[in-house]
Write a protein that binds this DNA or RNA. Sequence first.
DNA 1: CGTTTTCGAGAGCAGTGCTCTCACAGTAGA
DNA 2: TCTACTGTGAGAGCACTGCTCTCGAAAACG
Lengths: 240, 240
Amino acid sequence: MSAPRTARARVRAELTREIADAARRQLAESGAAGLSLRAVARELGMASSAVYRYFANRDELLTALIASAYDGIGAAAEAADAAVARGDHLGRWRAVGEAVRDWAQARPHEYALVYGSPVPGYAAPDSTVGPASRVVLALGANFADAARGGRLAPLAVPVSEPSGPLAAELAALLAGVPGGAEGVGAAAPDVVRRCLAAWTQLFGTVSFELFGQYAMVGHREEYVRHTLELTGVLLGLRAE
Amino acid sequence: MSAPRTARARVRAELTREIADAARRQLAESGAAGLSLRAVARELGMASSAVYRYFANRDELLTALIASAYDGIGAAAEAADAAVARGDHLGRWRAVGEAVRDWAQARPHEYALVYGSPVPGYAAPDSTVGPASRVVLALGANFADAARGGRLAPLAVPVSEPSGPLAAELAALLAGVPGGAEGVGAAAPDVVRRCLAAWTQLFGTVSFELFGQYAMVGHREEYVRHTLELTGVLLGLRAE
DNA sequence: CGTTTTCGAGAGCAGTGCTCTCACAGTAGA
DNA sequence: TCTACTGTGAGAGCACTGCTCTCGAAAACG
């Protein structure tokens, strides 16, 4: 992503972005399955075949949109987390949850693109795993901070700890989160499983709301807020 | 669904089923977006236009597949629940969870059709809400049974109860579960919110596993089992 | 300057959902 | 039983899709 040196390279980068933008607009209207390279070309007033100079095929265009969606949702989560006092772990969780939820509500098709059914015959390339983990890493930092400060409440009911290779594997994941595993010690597998559970609950809730599974609940927004709070508390997060 | 009286009606019902079966087969191979009416027609050796005598359009065919998927997953959940001792509430939860997970793993595309992104421009008709609620109703029966028997452990941490109209609405939902709200009393909103949280966590977990979000976890099946157990215990379910 | 690379446009292929028309076969009423 | 009706299958056709190929022009490079 260095600065384009020739005029040609500059206009190429610009056009690439314009195509992606038009595709995103069209995605918002018709969804992933309705995304048409020809329609994108029409909107930009160019021949459909010319688009193939910039994206080799539809999947490559989808990949660009997927990466940008992961980045957008990850940035929203990180910003929300950063805006809350470091020690208010429940507040940080709530903030990240609301941010993810609001982002999804504002861009349902982009959200569905990354957290809905995988596009058939399409495998996300490795370049998307980095952006894809930003949200869970933000959640993980919160849990790790709480554990480090001794402020992660013990699970109030007897639950078997993860054991054996699974425990080792979970503990190893902590090395990837900002702040790392220092100061967490033997609690690492427990901290990571709580984080993954929270992460799963968050996206399960957001998806269910967005995809219409909560049709039986009338006060949906209030319900979502309430259930996220419940999850955070049950998993040991506390306010300052 | 009465018995067809004329020969024509009989062969019509049969062909309708055959078309749906062929579509399901094709769905398993190419996913929802790759489901082609023409390919279905080819497989059955008939003209593509003839299929339209049985399903007005692609969406109607999809609706049939969606309904049958909901029914299949609901039946699997109910059967799993019924096979466990009524008083073993944690065991019932575990059984339903595993059943849903196994069903999804065996038929990923059918699962994605109902719990993945909604097909764009397609709205599920009312005829699918019945089958769609079978799983959550099975879970609800378990929670309600536990509450009735005084065996739903109180949440071990202070969590604000749902209040106001949301609480009333949650309580009202209990009327729909097998066994009803009798004997649950004032705990109804709490029981329902726990059930919905469990339901969300279950499908969040199954979807994340199926859609590849757990790529960082190597011992995935063990992890899924562990996290479902954790959820059940945290939400107050106990073994006999 | 000439050569090479890059790019846009157009035609074309194979496939899609869906509609329309037309001929035929099964059904029901006189 | 004959007739009118209705359900059904086949075929042609429309507008659309992703994608490939070729060709001429323009920009970049030596």
